Simulated scan of single mutants.
Amino acid sequence: MFPPTPPKGADPRMYFFLFLLTLGTTLGYQGWTLLYTNFAVESAHLSAADNGLVQSLREVPGLLGFLIIPILLVMKEHRVAAIAALATGLGTALTGFFPSLFPIILTTLLMSFGFHFFEAVNQSLLLQYFDLRTTPLVMGKLRGLAAGGSLAASVFVFSCSGFLPYTSMFLIVGALCALTGVWGLLLDPTNKDLPVQSKKMVFKRKYWLFYLLTLLLGARRQIFTVFALFLLVDHFAFSVHTVAILFMI
């Protein structure tokens, strides 16, 4: 059944809203991740230093995640989530049309701002709309959906890389993501009866371990998806077909 039935007691409108936007942003981001390195090496002919610059700038939107707070003062969270999904899709879709360093930086920043801002708002909406009993269940379903979306993106690239150019593959996965963002803009899944959410940054010393693990998770991701993947493609000549297999596994 698509989408899966929400857990008992979960708000069905917000659940369905987050379900489709999670699927869309996962397809867009994972599609970009799968295609980018081979595209950068084979089409844009970026050096290791160029790739390092692009991937470093890709993390800037994550560091600027606190900017979501002033945005939420003038815009509803579900609107921000939909616009973020749209930005992720547009950044991904446009990447294949500009095989050179500076355009790639711009499209990467657009995609990254969308993805990171969606992740921030997604977590906020989860905690706001689902109680302590249903939040882990909804979160688990959405995590499973994200894994399924990543697998679907890998299967798509694996199946189409033999006959579709990078431009078309970026465009397809990006357009699917952008369409979910447009769809999200047409809906209002909010519940007016919920208490107004606090819109300020909170840091607590007792969460230091969580902060540290999050930092290490980011470092691990950079080592694997940036350095190791570029090495495999540039030095060992892994094709995008082989990269898709690697990500499927």
Rank of each mutant, 00 (worst) to 15 (best):
W32L: 00
K76E: 13
L27M: 06
A93W: 06
A237V: 04
Y166E: 03
P6Y: 03
L164K: 06
S168R: 08
A84G: 06
S168Y: 14
L57A: 09
P136V: 06
K200F: 10
S154C: 03
F97S: 13
V138P: 03
I245R: 01
F102T: 02
L21F: 03
V182P: 04
G91D: 07
L171H: 00
H45R: 15
V155N: 11
V138D: 01
A40D: 12
I104D: 04
L46T: 02
T134E: 15
L27E: 03
L35W: 11
L164G: 09
F236N: 06
L101W: 03
F98I: 03
G96Y: 01
R133P: 01
S198E: 14
L213H: 12
S100N: 12
F163A: 10
T92P: 13
L145M: 15
C160E: 09
L187S: 05
L216C: 13
L213K: 07
T107C: 10
A10P: 04
V233T: 11
A81V: 09
M75L: 15
V157L: 09
S124D: 08
A178D: 03
A10Y: 04
L216I: 15
L176C: 14
L57S: 09
V121P: 02
R13Y: 05
V41F: 03
H241S: 13
G28H: 10
C160A: 15
L217M: 05
L246M: 13
R221C: 06
L185D: 01
T134R: 08
V138I: 14
S56Q: 04
Q197E: 11
T37E: 05
A237E: 14
S124G: 12
F203A: 10
L213W: 10
